[in-house]
Simulated assay, not measured.
Amino acid sequence: MSQQIPFVDYLVLGENPHLVANECAACGARFFDRRNACAACGATGFRKAQVATAGEVRAFTIVTVAAPGVPVPFVAATIDCEGTSVKANLVKVTPDPEHVKLGMKVRLATHSLGTDSAGTEAIGFGFEPLETAIDGQ
């Protein structure tokens, strides 16, 4: 039986995949990496906070040159998920300015990054256009 593991620690798999941020207990700033202190206020207390799975594209770039072996073009974006800023690639979208727009509604999507020789599958995430997700395309 194969096993699935998240590619990053802050991706939670299961029936309802989502991201989990470290939220400052003092000011509410959110971070995906480990912190000893809050970069916004300096406090040292953190709690886990589930991040909204839907959001809006706030910034994006269409990447046309990448490291060897990385297929291009692709869209790298910053997504506002109800106040939490998430950097991720857009998936299931044509990577050109006619199909990607600021303010575009998107939602979290998981996908396989590959399986090792022991059958363990790494699962990554991106965001897909909400219209595509609703239409099932």
Rank of each mutant, 00 (worst) to 15 (best):
M1W: 12
M1T: 14
I5Q: 11
I5M: 11
Y10M: 08
L11M: 01
L13V: 07
L13E: 08
G14E: 05
E15K: 15
P17C: 10
N22V: 08
A29Y: 06
R30V: 10
F32I: 08
R35E: 05
R35Q: 14
N36I: 09
A37I: 11
A39K: 12
A40G: 05
C41F: 06
G42P: 03
T44A: 05
A49D: 09
A52F: 00
G55K: 00
T64K: 13
A66R: 05
V72D: 04
F74G: 00
F74K: 01
I79T: 03
I79H: 01
D80C: 03
S85H: 09
S85R: 11
N89M: 08
K92V: 07
K92G: 12
V93T: 07
P95H: 02
D96Q: 11
V100Q: 00
K101M: 14
K101Y: 10
L102N: 11
K105D: 11
K105T: 09
A109W: 03
A109Q: 13
T110A: 04
T120A: 06
G124N: 00
F125M: 01
F127G: 00
F127M: 01
P129H: 03
L130T: 07
L130C: 08
E131K: 11
E131C: 05
T132N: 12
T132L: 07
A133R: 02
A133I: 03
I134N: 09
D135Q: 15
G136A: 09
G136K: 12
G136P: 09
